[in-house]
Amino acid sequence: MNQVVLMGRLTRDPEVRYSSGEKALAIARYTLAVDRRGKGEKAADFIPCVAFDRAAEFAEKYFRQGMRVLVSGRIQTGSYTNREGQKVYTTEVILTEQEFADSKGEAGKSSTGAAESGRINMQESDDFMHIPEGADDEGLPFN
């Protein structure tokens, strides 16, 4: 079984690009700083994460540097040859779910609890995306 669950803070705003072709697909990349639990010394791992399609657009619109988020997905490894001819190995988390880990109160607004945090499940079949309260309606597919 290949499944990972991480909670950490975004090291910078997500970077979104679109694939080429008839049906352009949004691809968001961001890095989570995940604290290591241990005795004494504080350390963090920096984990690259990738979200696709609507989840990528959600991350671009609502996730910002420093926010704490909870993600789950699978680890994927790969490799490529760079311009200097050296083989580079990659490891990243391909997301199946992502959500805010802090309540609105912890993010600097009135406290409402984690149950109302924004969440998107990339495997949901109902095609609904939970938008955090107070988000502007601009760009939403409905009004």
Rank of each mutant, 00 (worst) to 15 (best):
E84W: 10
A33R: 02
S125Y: 03
N82M: 05
S125E: 11
D137W: 07
M7V: 14
A44I: 09
Q98V: 10
P141E: 06
E60Q: 11
A28H: 03
E84N: 13
N121Q: 09
T90G: 05
G21D: 12
T91W: 01
L95F: 00
R83L: 14
V50G: 01
A26F: 02
V4S: 04
E84S: 06
P141L: 11
I120S: 02
Q3I: 12
A44D: 05
M67Q: 15
I131W: 10
D137A: 10
E57H: 00
S111F: 13
M1K: 06
L95C: 08
R74C: 09
A55K: 04
V4C: 09
F58L: 14
S111H: 11
A43F: 12
T81V: 15
D45T: 04
L25H: 09
A43P: 08
R9W: 10
R54I: 10
M1P: 15
V4M: 05
D13R: 03
G21S: 01
D136E: 11
F142D: 05
G105V: 05
Q3K: 13
Q3S: 14
V5I: 13
I75Q: 13
F58W: 15
V5W: 01
N2T: 09
R17V: 11
E92I: 00
P141R: 06
A115W: 10
A28L: 05
K109H: 11
Q3C: 05
S110A: 10
T90Q: 06
A101D: 11
R29F: 03
V69C: 09
E99P: 01
G108I: 00
E138K: 09
I94T: 11
K61F: 00
G105K: 10
I27W: 06
L95D: 09
D102Y: 06
V69D: 09
G134K: 14
G105N: 07
R29G: 12
I27Y: 01
I120G: 05
H130T: 13
S19K: 04
Q86Y: 03
A59L: 04
E57R: 07
G139S: 07
A107C: 08
E99Q: 15
T90K: 07
I94Y: 13
Q98T: 08
Q3D: 15
A56G: 03
A101R: 02
P48V: 07
E97K: 13
V93G: 02
